[in-house]
Design a binder for these strands. Structure first.
Lengths: 328, 328
DNA sequence: GACTTGAGTACGAATATAACC
DNA sequence: AGGTTATATTCGTACTCAAGT
């Protein structure tokens, strides 16, 4: 900056002003400064700037589970929203939920000096750590099933509503015995979808068949869980699977036993993963508005005024009806 | 740091030394300092540190196409490798390939002061910009089909080899007419897979049927391309699809016309996307070692000595044989 | 003399205050 | 006086060099 100043024949102070409040400097001087900057390929040193202003223009995103669909998509959505608002995104993905790993990751971010952290936390472990964190830096938790606390905002996608919509769709088609294969119950999302499923059934005065739990979110887990479902005495008319991959595993298991989808059983998934429209049959599912949720999270993080909101900002997912569901 | 020093009854200099070269300070003094740091919840200011050392412990990852399988997985792999080596990862995803967008993104990183950049570049546009960048900061390009240049290392996955393995698998099964549905040909990966397919056919003395191009990497594109393939006079014995989703769209298109997979036509995909083992039929495909490639990229970036390598570090993918291929 | 500690300064930008026209 | 520019100091850490044991 000093060099630029010398070249432009002004003081470094003038250069600084030309950058930070251009209107406070004579147009003529400003142009000289700008030209000098261009000629020298000057680039502001963000560390010196951060040192003085203690703002970095960088937010941290902490996520968990590197390949799961939801967290991944949410991460990308937040990155996009952040960049549109001029913020860079630092990413850290936690592979195990051990408290010390979690803490060291959060410390890592904190020590890298960021303006705020978005924690994508599908399971309680991370959420707890995030609460601790909120004392030291602005934090937004992206999840379902949690409520805002002090210094802590919450955004996410309304899992219960999504599950209700899936189940209601099956009810509208005339199904009466609607089973659910849940995801791993330590996930907030899995719990929310169970609740939504039960709600919809209750409203329609239907009994909930015994629930089957998948041990993970993959097709393999769905396949295994399906065996358990089928072993039960009465086959349901329809199944709401906790996500698309579980639905896929289920469909495969049914197919192997000669049970046709949707003729014998209707199946609904959740997520609308890529290509789910080309499964056979094309999968009816619930699409999650990740980008909207990411945007909401970012706004909570950046707008201090909003930080006081005491109601979580949960966004509504959308039902995508396709070929895996049919009237009973 | 001054506060810590005061509390520990030493100078700020001693505190600094206790942090940076602990062995150069008396164990007794060090313990006093450490205790003071703990008591005060001291945390090193990374900006001041970066200002002085001009190293941030942060690398940038620039990628393109937010939902495509390859780039996404590669990004996550690099983040993992980086964190294992104590580096944080800043992420920036480019949604369009307009030169000014690209340049401003790279500038953005540069001005945030990072120790190096990994550019995941499936298409040439980004690669060009990355070359410019290499003059200013260490850069590693992750791609296929490019060669290292000055200050520019290249790592990636050997697409040609993967395609050869897929095609050879079909040849071994006795197929003679092996078609290919390529990905969008502006992608290096798409080109590499075409080359590998041709190579394998040439070695086996087989003629390559006319190639069909998909206009994107999605199932929909595969479905559309399949129509074109089927419209040709002679149906091939087997098809090597440029990725799993294209394969899925193809299978669906075949199925709709009563052509069975694998009885009538064998199909191989590429990527081994989640759940591809539960497609119907389970998809034979080529798995890409993203984590290995990410690690390789990071090592190239961080080990200056290696920066001189003139041969790209391409890692071998692996064939996963499943039910969508059968002997002819 | 080898080892440990302390004082002072530089990194690069921002800002309060003073000086200029 | 009113609008611009310049001077001097600050942020927190690392490092050179000198002083102390």
């Amino acid at each position: 900056m000093v060099d630029v100043a010398r070249r432009a024949g002004v003081s470094h102070q003038t250069v600084s002003r030309a950058l930070n409040s251009p209107e406070a400097v004579l147009p003529d001087t400003r142009r000289r400064v700008e030209r000098a900057m261009r000629e020298m390929g000057y680039r502001r040193n963000s560390h010196a700037r951060a040192l003085k202003t203690s703002r970095t223009g960088m937010i941290g995103v902490v996520s968990q589970g590197n390949t799961d669909f939801g967290p991944t998509r949410m991460t990308l959505a937040i990155e996009k929203a952040a960049r549109e608002r001029g913020y860079a995104t630092a990413l850290s993905i936690i592979h195990d939920a051990r408290p010390d790993t979690v803490e060291s990751t959060l410390e890592f971010f904190l020590s890298h000096g960021i303006d705020g952290i978005v924690v994508i936390t599908p399971v309680p472990a991370l959420a707890e750590a995030a609460k601790q964190l909120a004392a030291k830096t602005p934090v937004v938790i992206v999840t379902s099933g949690l409520w805002p606390a002090d210094n802590l905002s919450v955004a996410g996608i309304d899992q219960e509503l999504g599950a209700r919509r899936a189940t209601e769709h099956l009810i509208r088609l005339g199904h009466r015995s609607i089973a659910h294969i849940s995801g791993p119950m330590d996930w907030f999302d899995a719990k929310g979808r169970v609740v939504g499923w039960r709600q919809a059934l209750a409203v329609a005065d239907l009994k909930a068949p015994p629930m089957v739990q998948a041990r993970g979110w993959n097709a393999e887990n769905g396949y295994t869980a399906a065996a358990e479902l089928i072993a039960g005495r009465n086959l349901p008319d329809a199944v709401f699977a906790a996500n698309d991959f579980i639905a896929l595993g289920l469909i495969r298991a049914l197919e192997e036993r000669g049970i046709r989808v949707p003729e014998d059983i209707s199946v609904v998934g959740f997520d609308d993963v890529e290509a789910s429209g080309y499964f056979s049959p094309p999968l009816t599912t619930v699409r999650q508005p990740f980008e909207d949720a990411g945007l909401a999270a970012l706004e909570l993080l950046l707008d201090d005024s909003e930080h006081l909101t005491s109601v979580p900002n949960f966004i509504a997912p959308q039902l995508i009806a396709r070929g895996s569901t049919a009237p009973s």
